[in-house]
Amino acid sequence: MNRLATVFADTRAHNRAALIPYVTAGDPSPLLTVPLMHTLVDAGADVIELGVPFSDPMADGPVIQRATERALTYSVTMRNVLEMVMDFRRQNQQTPVVLMGYANPIEAMGIEQFAREAASAGVDGVLTVDYPAEEAQPITDALAEVGLANIFLVSPTTPYAREQAVLKQASGFIYYVSLRGVTGAALSDLDEVRAKVEELKAQSSLPVGVGFGIRDAETAQKMSAFADAVVIGSSLITAMEEVAPQGDAAVLAAAYGLLSPIRAVLQR
């Protein structure tokens, strides 16, 4: 069983939702990314979503745009991100790492080459915002070849027929975008989210995580009642951003401080 399946089997067995924090690789600085990943695990992260910086993050809100721009001041590349994962794996062989980003850095490396290097670095899954199911078959095949999950977004605007097409290629888990909007926007209607998550779970045995717009423990707890995982991104980055001038230790403490109370409320 791969790392993602192991984690979700474990959280299911313990009747809780998995915690998936998102950080952008290289933010606030490339040297801090691996220590930050270990801190996230210490704070209770079950899976780490690691953003691959891209110059044109068209689906991201201002918070993750800023994180991306900070990372790009260090010219963080896809290969740098894979090196960070490799480095993380020296101490941690259990926690799955999912790369989240955009198609072009993958295209620049070549899809097959990327899949091979990601697998050997210790990546577990890949989520590419601008590879929808219609254009994703080449990367789905390349990732499957090396045993990596291709993780897809499903949104409130995804009709039932499209869900079917997405589920045909999806593996690892389904990432349900809980709002119409970019990352970090305000969450709208919890009942709508619940209905859609339950619709997805009825069609697939894959776990369904929920993200975009989960800002605090209270919302996370509500989501955890029906979602298999909650993703925390923009609010985590904001917490770190606020203390960044105080140095690396403050950044790590802020990440820990934001996540651990959320982790505590995910037990159903």
Partner: peptide
């Protein structure tokens, strides 16, 4: 060409 768009836009594009 093609449709390399975020999932939220796929249905509006259709």
């Amino acid at each position: 060409g093609g449709i390399f768009a975020p999932e939220t836009l796929m249905h509006p594009l259709a």
